[in-house]
Design a protein around this nucleic acid. Structure first.
Length: 208
DNA sequence: ACAAGGATCCTCT
DNA sequence: GAGGATCCTTGTT
């Protein structure tokens, strides 16, 4: 039941609404399954933190395409960051996957992370990209189709905490402060837990 | 053709 | 908590 893929229609809404609904969902690539524990919404229009803010370019083109696809970009020349494209065609908006907890395939994830020992803590977007072995060629990949990288229904219910987004000091103050970061309640699986807000959203997916 | 800077991570202290 | 790694993307000349 929880391993069913989410349909294309699930993604076609504003990033602000889609983002909290991604917490507790599962990302699967072959043997590896990750439970999403932290995301950030990047909005359209008028979000100075969003890559699409300055318009469409070759790099961010996937954000302007149809929802439910991946947008993967290279950060600091070495980290591959996974986003889920939201909104309608022509609107450059997406949700960044910032952290996750391994559900299956831990040995594979550990190997992809350079064979580090100890618990596999995917607390940061670069780590998530490495765990799934992604690069920019995954942009435009449809997450609702079988094969490759898929988004599954995952957990039936969860609680989500909000907070300001991380690493966007270059953005306008109103965008820096906007509570567009969403995390699971278990801060063990969250990057930078000290910068969290106080409000909590309850999500029950059984009653849909 | 060039310069600047980045939605980060790791290794120190 | 601070700093270096590392290289692609972008806007400008």
């Amino acid at each position: 039941m929880s391993r069913r893929r989410l349909p294309e229609s699930f993604f076609s809404r504003d990033a602000r609404d889609l983002a909290p609904d991604l917490i507790g969902r599962w990302l699967r690539r072959d043997e590896v399954i990750l439970q999403i524990t932290e995301v950030e919404a990047y909005l359209w229009p008028d979000d100075t933190a969003c890559h699409a803010c300055a318009g469409q370019t070759a790099r961010n083109a996937a954000m302007f395409g149809p929802a439910g696809r991946a947008y993967v970009y290279l950060c600091y020349g070495l980290h591959n960051m996974l986003n889920v494209v939201s909104n309608a065609v022509g609107q450059g908006s997406a949700v960044l996957i910032r952290a996750a907890r391994p559900i299956a395939g831990e040995a594979i994830v550990s190997a992809r992370r350079g064979g580090r020992t100890g618990p596999v803590m995917l607390t940061g977007p670069g780590k998530v990209g490495a765990a799934l072995d992604l690069d920019v060629s995954w942009s435009n990949h449809a997450l609702f189709r079988a094969g490759g990288l898929e988004l599954l229904r995952g957990d039936p219910a969860c609680e989500v905490r909000t907070g300001p987004r991380i690493g966007i000091d270059y953005a306008a103050p109103k965008d820096r402060d906007a509570e567009l970061r969403f995390t699971s309640m278990d801060t063990r699986w969250v990057s930078k837990p000290r910068k969290l807000g106080t409000s909590v959203i309850r999500i029950d997916r059984n009653k849909r």
